[in-house]
Amino acid sequence: MGTANIVEVKNLNSAYGQSKVIFDVSLQIKPKERLSIVGRNGAGKTTLLKSIASLLNPTSGSVVYDGIELVGKPSYDVARMGLKYIDQDKHVFLDLTVRENLELSSYATGDYDWDKVFKHFPKLKILIDRKGAFLSGGERQMLMIGRAILGDPKVLLIDEPTEGLAPSIVDDLVTTFHELSKDCAIMTVGQNLSFVSRIAERIYAMKEGKLVAEITDEAKIKDNSYSCYL
């Protein structure tokens, strides 16, 4: 069967206080696809993700996830329904151990099956009693993704996944994202075009708060030719 969209964003407008950031954005996320939004600094990528995840209240428009309207829902409900947002600042709870970080996520979702986390990130099992403050950037990113996949989300929104990470870790992330997308859709936003080329099946280019292009052609994605839209 042709895949129905898991997320349907229609005419979304969003603002920080008086300044409008997102203008009439419409997009779709298909189940289990790897989607990327690329754009320069200040194009409104983060605002868009936060608006979709209900962490910001859009001024108008609608976000339908799995047949349910998300606008106006508290973000914790959205997360529990299986649409999770992963912040760009690699902020794990510094005072909490890896175990406690995972426990919190389990408590929120009722999913205590940590094996799938360790399947993707075996290293977390070794670090289980280490506090967040003593994890490296890559380990923090693992933990953030690891605790997000508890509760079997259908969509992961990941903000700048490669920012501040060493190249070898970025390579691991590419593999991980391919693995993860067997179970859920992944939408990343970022400026690291080589990374995007390696993971994305579809790309939206974003400029000044608007989506200016959609790139689905595999060849075009591979050779970075979409960069002309930025």
């Binding site: 995840a53 962490l55 508290p74 973000s75 914790y76 409900d77 997360a79 529990r80 999770k84 947002y85 992963i86 912040d87 902020h91 709870f93 510094l94 005072d95 909490l96 919190l104 996520s105 408590y107 929120a108 979702t109 605790r147 997000a148 509760g151």
Partner: peptide, 11 residues
């Protein structure tokens, strides 16, 4: 530490 992140976890 960060209330917004707790919310993003679904709590």
């Amino acid at each position: 530490d960060d209330a917004e992140k707790v919310e993003a976890l679904g709590i």
